[in-house]
Simulated scan of single mutants.
Amino acid sequence: MQAKEKILLAAERLYAERGLDVSLREIALAAGQGNHSAVQYHFDGKAGLIDALYAHRMTPLNHRRRELIDDLRAHGLEQDLPALVEAYLAPLAEHVLTHRGASWYLRFTSRYVLSGAYRSWPCSSDHHPGVGELAGLLRRRLPGLTRERLRVLNLHVVVVLADLEQRLGDPAFDAARAAAAVADLRVTAHALLTA
């Protein structure tokens, strides 16, 4: 594993565990970097590191979301609310289930969003083009859908999946319980949009 990836994974874990006040020096040490300026060197500071963390995880997630959006368009499901919810939710849920407690991405995202540091989240960032496209499709399907309701949907999904990500670190929390939690999240996300 390259130094940059070690730094990204260490930062993701430390930010998820302790919040955004972790020093760049602590991140470098956790990544096994003897040079305490390694984060500054590779990422040009904290803002660059956080941007790189999102790029590291969101690139494959957006690729998967793009596949789901293309698929629902190909099948004429642009107005099908369960299909739209699935296109939003599935990439994140698949990431959590696939990494089974080895990723800290949703926990990091939850901390970051709740810190207030990311005021425009989730629809205006370069890292979330699929989410922005889905927001447009959801607004066409639900004309009264407000930006605040979309924000609440995103918060709900991220926090629930962050909790699931943490629970998956416990070997006693089996795949059936994890699948049931994701199925319940689909139901509550749909209900939140139509409440």
Rank of each mutant, 00 (worst) to 15 (best):
E148V: 11
W121S: 02
L142K: 05
H128R: 08
P143T: 08
R147L: 11
R147K: 08
Y112R: 07
T146C: 03
G116R: 09
V113Y: 03
L114W: 09
A162W: 04
L134M: 05
Y118Q: 04
P143G: 14
P122T: 03
T109W: 01
V152I: 15
V152G: 02
A117G: 15
A117R: 13
H156W: 14
V152Q: 14
D163T: 06
R119M: 11
L142H: 06
L164K: 11
L150F: 03
E133G: 00
C123A: 09
A135E: 06
V160G: 01
V131P: 00
S120I: 06
S125Y: 12
A162F: 02
N154M: 13
V131L: 09
F108H: 11
V159H: 13
R141A: 14
E133Y: 04
R149A: 13
S120T: 15
C123F: 15
R141K: 15
S110K: 08
A117W: 05
V131D: 01
L155Q: 11
P129R: 04
T146S: 12
T109L: 11
R147D: 14
H127R: 04
R149I: 07
G136S: 06
E148Y: 15
G136E: 13
W121G: 05
L155C: 07
L114D: 10
S125V: 12
R140Y: 00
V152P: 00
L164N: 07
L150D: 05
R147H: 12
E133T: 10
P129K: 05
P129M: 09
P143A: 10
Y118F: 14
N154W: 03
L155V: 10
R147Q: 11
S124L: 08
R140T: 09
S110T: 00
C123T: 15
R119I: 15
T109V: 11
T146D: 02
A162E: 04
P143S: 10
S110I: 01
G136T: 07
L164C: 08
A162P: 06
A135V: 05
V158A: 08
L153A: 13
R140I: 01
E133H: 04
R141Y: 00
H156E: 06
S110V: 03
G144C: 00
L161I: 05
H128S: 15
L114R: 14
E133R: 13
E133F: 02
G136R: 13
G132C: 10
S110W: 10
T109M: 11
S120K: 14
W121H: 09
H127N: 09
H156T: 08
L138K: 06
R139K: 13
L145F: 07
G116K: 10
G132N: 14
R141G: 07
L164W: 05
S120H: 15
L114Q: 13
G116P: 12
L153W: 10
W121A: 01
R111Q: 12
R119F: 12
L138H: 07
F108M: 12
W121C: 05
L150G: 06
R139A: 10
L155W: 12
L164Q: 06
R149E: 07
R139N: 00
S124Y: 14
L138D: 07
A162I: 04
L153H: 09
L153T: 09
P143I: 11
L137M: 12
L161W: 04
L138E: 06
V159F: 03
V131G: 02
R139P: 00
R141E: 06
L142G: 03
L150K: 03
V158L: 00
A135S: 09
D126P: 02
L153Q: 11
Y118L: 13
G144D: 13
H156M: 11
V131K: 01
